[in-house]
Design a protein around this nucleic acid. Structure first.
Lengths: 138, 138
DNA sequence: CGGTATCCACAGGGATACTG
DNA sequence: CAGTATCCCTGTGGATACCG
Protein backbone atom coordinates (compact mmCIF):
# COMPACT_ATOMS: atom_id res chain seq x y z
CA UNK A 1 0.00 0.00 0.00
CA UNK A 2 2.28 2.71 -1.21
CA UNK A 3 1.56 6.24 -0.24
CA UNK A 4 -0.70 5.24 2.60
CA UNK A 5 -1.30 8.16 4.84
CA UNK A 6 1.42 10.12 3.08
CA UNK A 7 1.48 13.19 0.95
CA UNK A 8 3.44 13.67 -2.19
CA UNK A 9 3.44 17.41 -2.04
CA UNK A 10 6.66 19.09 -0.85
CA UNK A 11 6.03 20.28 2.68
CA UNK A 12 4.42 23.69 2.39
CA UNK A 13 0.99 22.18 2.73
CA UNK A 14 -1.69 23.00 5.24
CA UNK A 15 -4.78 20.82 5.01
CA UNK A 16 -4.75 17.05 5.31
CA UNK A 17 -5.36 15.63 1.84
CA UNK A 18 -7.31 12.78 3.37
CA UNK A 19 -10.81 13.23 4.66
CA UNK A 20 -11.05 14.04 8.35
CA UNK A 21 -12.86 10.82 9.15
CA UNK A 22 -15.84 10.50 6.88
CA UNK A 23 -17.01 6.95 7.53
CA UNK A 24 -13.57 5.73 8.29
CA UNK A 25 -12.49 6.88 11.72
CA UNK A 26 -10.28 4.29 13.29
CA UNK A 27 -11.28 1.49 11.01
CA UNK A 28 -8.22 2.24 8.93
CA UNK A 29 -5.96 1.21 11.79
CA UNK A 30 -7.51 -2.24 11.84
CA UNK A 31 -7.70 -2.49 8.08
CA UNK A 32 -4.02 -1.68 7.80
CA UNK A 33 -3.23 -4.70 9.96
CA UNK A 34 -5.55 -6.86 7.92
CA UNK A 35 -4.06 -5.51 4.78
CA UNK A 36 -0.46 -6.30 5.32
CA UNK A 37 0.79 -9.63 4.21
CA UNK A 38 1.56 -11.23 7.56
CA UNK A 39 -0.34 -9.85 10.55
CA UNK A 40 -3.38 -12.02 10.06
CA UNK A 41 -1.37 -15.19 9.52
CA UNK A 42 0.56 -14.50 12.69
CA UNK A 43 -2.60 -13.85 14.69
CA UNK A 44 -4.20 -17.01 13.37
CA UNK A 45 -1.17 -19.04 14.39
CA UNK A 46 -0.98 -17.42 17.80
CA UNK A 47 -4.66 -18.12 18.32
CA UNK A 48 -3.57 -21.75 18.64
CA UNK A 49 -1.30 -20.97 21.53
CA UNK A 50 1.95 -19.43 22.69
CA UNK A 51 4.73 -19.62 20.14
CA UNK A 52 8.45 -18.91 20.02
CA UNK A 53 10.06 -16.84 17.30
CA UNK A 54 11.34 -19.84 15.42
CA UNK A 55 8.08 -21.67 15.76
CA UNK A 56 6.24 -18.76 14.21
CA UNK A 57 8.66 -18.64 11.35
CA UNK A 58 8.02 -22.27 10.55
CA UNK A 59 4.29 -22.03 11.11
CA UNK A 60 4.01 -19.19 8.64
CA UNK A 61 5.91 -20.44 5.61
CA UNK A 62 7.43 -17.78 3.44
CA UNK A 63 7.80 -15.09 6.05
CA UNK A 64 11.29 -13.68 6.33
CA UNK A 65 13.06 -13.20 9.61
CA UNK A 66 12.83 -9.48 9.11
CA UNK A 67 9.10 -9.38 8.39
CA UNK A 68 8.36 -11.68 11.30
CA UNK A 69 10.26 -9.33 13.55
CA UNK A 70 8.64 -6.21 12.10
CA UNK A 71 5.12 -7.60 12.06
CA UNK A 72 5.33 -9.03 15.54
CA UNK A 73 6.57 -5.73 16.86
CA UNK A 74 3.64 -3.96 15.25
CA UNK A 75 1.19 -6.35 16.85
CA UNK A 76 2.85 -5.86 20.21
CA UNK A 77 2.64 -2.11 19.78
CA UNK A 78 -1.06 -2.38 19.00
CA UNK A 79 -1.57 -4.43 22.12
CA UNK A 80 -2.71 -7.54 20.31
CA UNK A 81 0.32 -9.60 21.18
CA UNK A 82 2.44 -9.98 24.29
CA UNK A 83 6.16 -10.68 24.14
CA UNK A 84 8.06 -12.41 26.91
CA UNK A 85 11.83 -12.63 26.77
CA UNK A 86 13.76 -15.19 28.78
CA UNK A 87 17.36 -13.99 29.07
CA UNK A 88 18.74 -17.50 28.92
CA UNK A 89 21.50 -18.74 26.67
CA UNK A 90 20.50 -19.28 24.02
CA UNK A 91 17.72 -16.70 24.34
CA UNK A 92 14.07 -17.57 24.18
CA UNK A 93 11.11 -15.36 23.35
CA UNK A 94 7.47 -16.27 23.68
CA UNK A 95 4.66 -14.62 21.82
CA UNK A 96 1.02 -14.91 22.80
CA UNK A 97 -2.21 -13.11 22.14
CA UNK A 98 -3.50 -10.62 24.67
CA UNK A 99 -7.19 -10.45 25.51
CA UNK A 100 -7.62 -7.84 22.79
CA UNK A 101 -5.67 -10.06 20.44
CA UNK A 102 -7.97 -13.00 21.09
CA UNK A 103 -10.94 -10.78 20.44
CA UNK A 104 -9.32 -9.69 17.20
CA UNK A 105 -8.67 -13.31 16.27
CA UNK A 106 -12.36 -13.91 16.68
CA UNK A 107 -13.22 -11.11 14.29
CA UNK A 108 -10.68 -12.46 11.83
CA UNK A 109 -12.15 -15.93 12.11
CA UNK A 110 -15.55 -14.53 11.14
CA UNK A 111 -13.96 -12.94 8.12
CA UNK A 112 -12.19 -16.17 7.26
CA UNK A 113 -15.55 -17.90 7.36
CA UNK A 114 -16.97 -15.36 4.95
CA UNK A 115 -14.00 -15.92 2.68
CA UNK A 116 -14.40 -19.65 2.65
CA UNK A 117 -18.10 -19.57 1.91
CA UNK A 118 -17.67 -17.05 -0.91
CA UNK A 119 -14.31 -17.84 -2.42
CA UNK A 120 -15.79 -20.03 -5.11
CA UNK A 121 -18.29 -17.40 -6.14
CA UNK A 122 -15.53 -14.81 -6.28
CA UNK A 123 -13.26 -17.06 -8.30
CA UNK A 124 -16.10 -17.83 -10.68
CA UNK A 125 -16.89 -14.15 -11.09
CA UNK A 126 -13.27 -13.42 -11.88
CA UNK A 127 -13.00 -16.17 -14.43
CA UNK A 128 -16.20 -14.99 -16.00
CA UNK A 129 -14.99 -11.40 -16.08
CA UNK A 130 -11.64 -12.40 -17.50
CA UNK A 131 -13.10 -14.43 -20.34
CA UNK A 132 -15.53 -11.63 -21.06
CA UNK A 133 -12.68 -9.11 -21.11
CA UNK A 134 -9.72 -11.00 -22.54
CA UNK A 135 -7.65 -7.86 -22.95
CA UNK A 136 -7.09 -5.67 -19.87
CA UNK A 137 -3.87 -5.46 -17.94
CA UNK A 138 -4.81 -6.64 -14.43
CA UNK B 1 1.62 -3.84 -0.36
CA UNK B 2 4.57 -4.15 -2.63
CA UNK B 3 5.48 -7.56 -3.86
CA UNK B 4 2.17 -9.09 -2.99
CA UNK B 5 1.81 -12.40 -4.73
CA UNK B 6 4.95 -11.69 -6.72
CA UNK B 7 8.37 -13.15 -6.84
CA UNK B 8 11.57 -11.23 -7.04
CA UNK B 9 13.56 -14.07 -8.46
CA UNK B 10 14.28 -13.91 -12.20
CA UNK B 11 12.03 -16.43 -13.91
CA UNK B 12 13.81 -19.76 -13.79
CA UNK B 13 11.95 -20.72 -10.66
CA UNK B 14 9.88 -23.80 -10.07
CA UNK B 15 8.20 -23.93 -6.67
CA UNK B 16 5.83 -21.26 -5.43
CA UNK B 17 7.65 -19.30 -2.74
CA UNK B 18 4.36 -18.88 -0.89
CA UNK B 19 2.82 -21.71 1.04
CA UNK B 20 0.33 -23.79 -0.87
CA UNK B 21 -2.50 -22.79 1.42
CA UNK B 22 -1.48 -23.41 4.97
CA UNK B 23 -4.28 -21.71 6.90
CA UNK B 24 -4.73 -19.08 4.26
CA UNK B 25 -6.57 -20.61 1.37
CA UNK B 26 -8.74 -17.98 -0.24
CA UNK B 27 -8.69 -15.63 2.70
CA UNK B 28 -5.95 -13.71 0.97
CA UNK B 29 -8.30 -12.74 -1.81
CA UNK B 30 -10.63 -11.07 0.63
CA UNK B 31 -7.85 -9.59 2.68
CA UNK B 32 -6.34 -8.01 -0.39
CA UNK B 33 -9.59 -6.12 -0.99
CA UNK B 34 -9.70 -5.08 2.65
CA UNK B 35 -6.12 -4.05 2.49
CA UNK B 36 -6.19 -1.62 -0.34
CA UNK B 37 -6.94 1.97 0.39
CA UNK B 38 -10.35 2.33 -1.26
CA UNK B 39 -12.31 -0.91 -1.68
CA UNK B 40 -13.84 -0.85 1.76
CA UNK B 41 -14.78 2.82 1.58
CA UNK B 42 -16.49 2.20 -1.73
CA UNK B 43 -18.37 -0.81 -0.44
CA UNK B 44 -19.50 1.10 2.63
CA UNK B 45 -20.82 3.90 0.46
CA UNK B 46 -22.54 1.54 -1.94
CA UNK B 47 -24.14 -0.23 0.99
CA UNK B 48 -26.23 2.92 1.31
CA UNK B 49 -27.60 2.54 -2.18
CA UNK B 50 -26.91 2.81 -5.89
CA UNK B 51 -24.39 5.48 -6.81
CA UNK B 52 -23.09 7.09 -9.97
CA UNK B 53 -19.41 7.54 -10.69
CA UNK B 54 -19.39 11.16 -9.74
CA UNK B 55 -21.40 10.54 -6.61
CA UNK B 56 -18.91 7.97 -5.45
CA UNK B 57 -16.06 10.33 -6.05
CA UNK B 58 -17.65 12.93 -3.83
CA UNK B 59 -18.77 10.44 -1.22
CA UNK B 60 -15.25 9.13 -0.82
CA UNK B 61 -13.17 12.26 -0.40
CA UNK B 62 -9.60 12.02 -1.54
CA UNK B 63 -10.04 9.26 -4.08
CA UNK B 64 -8.68 10.12 -7.50
CA UNK B 65 -10.61 9.52 -10.67
CA UNK B 66 -8.12 6.87 -11.61
CA UNK B 67 -8.30 4.95 -8.35
CA UNK B 68 -12.06 5.10 -8.32
CA UNK B 69 -12.08 3.60 -11.77
CA UNK B 70 -9.50 0.96 -10.93
CA UNK B 71 -11.03 -0.02 -7.58
CA UNK B 72 -14.55 -0.17 -8.91
CA UNK B 73 -13.43 -2.38 -11.75
CA UNK B 74 -11.78 -4.74 -9.29
CA UNK B 75 -14.95 -4.97 -7.23
CA UNK B 76 -16.97 -5.67 -10.35
CA UNK B 77 -14.52 -8.37 -11.34
CA UNK B 78 -14.87 -9.98 -7.92
CA UNK B 79 -18.62 -9.94 -8.30
CA UNK B 80 -19.23 -7.63 -5.35
CA UNK B 81 -20.42 -4.73 -7.45
CA UNK B 82 -22.64 -4.44 -10.50
CA UNK B 83 -22.12 -1.76 -13.13
CA UNK B 84 -24.89 -0.50 -15.36
CA UNK B 85 -24.08 1.86 -18.20
CA UNK B 86 -26.71 4.06 -19.79
CA UNK B 87 -25.45 5.11 -23.23
CA UNK B 88 -27.05 8.52 -22.98
CA UNK B 89 -25.37 11.83 -23.66
CA UNK B 90 -23.82 12.68 -21.38
CA UNK B 91 -23.23 9.08 -20.27
CA UNK B 92 -24.40 7.71 -16.95
CA UNK B 93 -23.10 4.75 -15.00
CA UNK B 94 -24.68 3.23 -11.93
CA UNK B 95 -22.85 1.14 -9.38
CA UNK B 96 -24.60 -1.04 -6.87
CA UNK B 97 -23.74 -3.96 -4.62
CA UNK B 98 -24.60 -7.46 -5.73
CA UNK B 99 -25.99 -9.99 -3.25
CA UNK B 100 -22.44 -11.12 -2.54
CA UNK B 101 -21.44 -7.50 -2.16
CA UNK B 102 -24.13 -6.88 0.43
CA UNK B 103 -23.01 -9.94 2.30
CA UNK B 104 -19.48 -8.62 2.19
CA UNK B 105 -20.66 -5.24 3.43
CA UNK B 106 -22.15 -7.03 6.40
CA UNK B 107 -18.87 -8.70 7.22
CA UNK B 108 -17.12 -5.36 6.91
CA UNK B 109 -19.66 -3.74 9.21
CA UNK B 110 -18.88 -6.34 11.84
CA UNK B 111 -15.24 -5.50 11.50
CA UNK B 112 -15.97 -1.80 11.74
CA UNK B 113 -17.79 -2.50 14.98
CA UNK B 114 -14.78 -4.30 16.34
CA UNK B 115 -12.63 -1.35 15.34
CA UNK B 116 -14.84 1.16 17.04
CA UNK B 117 -15.01 -0.75 20.28
CA UNK B 118 -11.26 -1.34 20.40
CA UNK B 119 -9.75 1.72 18.79
CA UNK B 120 -9.19 3.46 22.10
CA UNK B 121 -7.45 0.46 23.59
CA UNK B 122 -5.24 0.19 20.54
CA UNK B 123 -4.42 3.88 20.55
CA UNK B 124 -3.59 3.68 24.25
CA UNK B 125 -1.36 0.68 23.69
CA UNK B 126 0.49 2.50 20.96
CA UNK B 127 1.01 5.61 23.03
CA UNK B 128 2.22 3.46 25.86
CA UNK B 129 4.59 1.56 23.60
CA UNK B 130 5.90 4.74 22.04
CA UNK B 131 6.67 6.40 25.34
CA UNK B 132 8.29 3.22 26.56
CA UNK B 133 10.38 3.02 23.39
CA UNK B 134 11.12 6.65 22.49
CA UNK B 135 13.67 5.70 19.88
CA UNK B 136 12.60 3.28 17.12
CA UNK B 137 11.93 4.32 13.56
CA UNK B 138 8.23 3.45 13.05
C1' DC C 1 18.36 -18.40 19.20
C1' DG C 2 16.43 -14.19 18.17
C1' DG C 3 16.95 -10.63 16.34
C1' DT C 4 19.15 -5.72 13.43
C1' DA C 5 21.15 -3.23 9.59
C1' DT C 6 21.42 -2.37 4.79
C1' DC C 7 20.23 -2.43 0.22
C1' DC C 8 17.01 -2.57 -3.45
C1' DA C 9 13.21 -4.24 -6.54
C1' DC C 10 8.54 -3.32 -7.48
C1' DA C 11 3.57 -2.76 -7.38
C1' DG C 12 0.31 0.87 -5.51
C1' DG C 13 -1.39 4.89 -6.22
C1' DG C 14 -1.31 10.37 -6.89
C1' DA C 15 -1.20 14.23 -10.52
C1' DT C 16 -2.15 15.54 -14.83
C1' DA C 17 -3.75 15.46 -19.50
C1' DC C 18 -6.67 13.64 -22.91
C1' DT C 19 -11.09 11.23 -25.07
C1' DG C 20 -15.83 9.19 -26.52
C1' DC D 1 -20.07 12.60 -17.51
C1' DA D 2 -17.17 8.84 -17.14
C1' DG D 3 -13.55 7.25 -17.89
C1' DT D 4 -8.21 6.02 -20.02
C1' DA D 5 -3.24 7.03 -20.67
C1' DT D 6 1.23 8.50 -18.75
C1' DC D 7 4.52 9.53 -15.69
C1' DC D 8 6.71 9.29 -11.45
C1' DC D 9 7.29 9.05 -6.45
C1' DT D 10 6.65 6.12 -2.38
C1' DG D 11 6.48 2.57 1.19
C1' DT D 12 6.53 -2.41 1.66
C1' DG D 13 8.77 -6.12 2.07
C1' DG D 14 12.41 -9.72 0.16
C1' DA D 15 17.49 -10.98 0.35
C1' DT D 16 21.53 -10.88 2.64
C1' DA D 17 24.86 -10.11 6.16
C1' DC D 18 25.97 -9.35 10.74
C1' DC D 19 25.40 -9.24 16.22
C1' DG D 20 24.53 -10.25 21.54
Amino acid sequence: MAGTRTRTTPATEAADPYAPCEDDCGIRDVLDRLGDRWSVLLVVELAKGTRRFRELQHAVPGISQRMLSVTAKRLVRDGLVERTVYPTIPPRTDYRLTATGRSFAGAVAALADWSRTHKDAIAASRDDFDTRHPDEVR
